[in-house]
Design a protein around this nucleic acid. Structure first.
Lengths: 233, 233
DNA sequence: TTTGTAAATTGATAATTATCAATTAGTTTT
DNA sequence: AAAACTAATTGATAATTATCAATTTACAAA
């Protein structure tokens, strides 16, 4: 191996990728100065994953941290009885493996729900940046705060009250800003794991919402009728 | 006012308090060097709050950040229907108002459950430290990570499955390390708000646990019989 | 101690959700 | 296209939880 040459090239690539990346304003690297980019020694790759693929498993040694460019991922905890609960969804701009800076092992299983594109950032780069510069400080703090806010949302919107109401909350969340577009609708099993209800219950509610015209589905995609959904909200 | 004199005294107090504090190893200031303490211009007070007292409300302007020295606090979100959900409990070493660094307003209501003692740290001190030193970086990151882990716990242990199982999880959590001691047992209403069940359901389960010898209560305090509780776990 | 008040418990019933089984729809493989 | 498989839906019933009302207990005030 020729470490120097390799590293230089990696660095150039990183600079090219990241400095010009459309995602940069919302990425972890938003505050990086030109000189900071020199600290990125290992190559930053963009990886594409299909639905069902595993990004990483709990207790695996952390080697990368990921920024979601597009798609949808789930973070999962398995329960004693073999079932699972989805504790978080990751969308554009979210980070997977943020625990990298304090830990050596990932804390959750992270899997792809909807075909995803991710920046794969070697943890060594992060640590190098972290030692020499404070440029990661603000973006990281902002991510952590978002994680907390999302968790609060999860606890209040997706875990309390009647399951129809929780489903309505979830659908509105999944629809995001653009109410009117089709969005990815997880399987009934995953919806169950999101809302802490059984697959059958999830299916019944979705089916009823469809009958009532609150929801329209096309394969794995769906569109909501916001005003009709309000009655459950 | 005589800002200089005041500040100097405040600083001395802060140094005395914080440098020698028994809590320091687990506090936010664990990494502070002597010189860093000079940056603490505003007085750091220890405040004592009785049960039911409000530490702060959501949307209030952030002026302080708090470290829990002892006692128990709840962070609460109110729902549309007037009910509330407890999204987090704060115990020794936890921080209230950690969002201070990214925001101007508190994000949750925070109230005292069990008589609490707190360090009241002016946000100006934190910001001063933050600008001149990196000593808060690691402790803050560790706190954020703990918040995430606690949230995951909340979502998986306190929000999924039968309410008896969730109650067992909660009691074990409240008992903490020392299974054998009495610990603070929240009101049935608060337990309901913790587990997303009705007050009456919480009461029924507690009463049944008592009848079965899983739980022994004395006023607001309780002790668990771990092995008997396992049947619900 | 008595009185008043809030919290906890219990009962009866309704509503919701889980469970288990069967059927239908949708995909993929051959 | 047929077969094989998986996901989604639906039905029937059991179990759990909510709801509303009443009672008991615990505790503070007079």
């Amino acid at each position: 191996m020729k470490p120097n040459k390799y590293n230089n090239q990696a660095n150039k690539e990183a600079v090219n990728h990241c400095q010009q990346c459309l995602m940069r304003p919302i990425s972890l690297f938003s505050d990086l100065q030109e000189s900071d980019f020199d600290l990125l020694r290992q190559p930053i790759n963009i990886i594409e994953l299909e639905a069902e693929e595993i990004l990483y498993k709990e207790k695996q040694v952390i080697r990368y941290l990921y920024t979601v460019r597009s798609g949808l991922l789930k973070q999962v905890r398995y329960l004693d009885d073999g079932s699972y609960r989805i504790v978080r969804l990751l969308r554009q701009g979210d980070i997977a493996g943020i625990e990298a800076l304090n830990n050596t092992f990932y804390k959750q299983h992270t899997l792809v729900l909807q075909k995803a594109s991710l920046c794969q950032i070697p943890i060594k780069n992060i640590k190098a940046l972290d030692q020499k510069s404070t440029c990661l400080y603000k973006p990281l703090m902002a991510r952590w705060q978002k994680i907390q806010q999302d968790a609060d949302l999860w606890i209040t919107e997706f875990s309390v009250g009647h399951s129809k109401k929780r489903m309505a909350n979830l659908l509105i969340y999944l629809a995001g800003e653009n109410d009117t577009d089709f969005f990815f609708l997880p399987s009934r099993e995953d919806i169950g794991a999101l809302l802490a209800i059984r697959t059958e219950t999830a299916s019944r509610i979705i089916a009823e919402f469809k009958r009532q015209g609150c929801l329209q589905t096309k394969g794995n995609y769906a569109k909501i009728n916001f005003s009709k959904l309000k009655q459950f909200y």
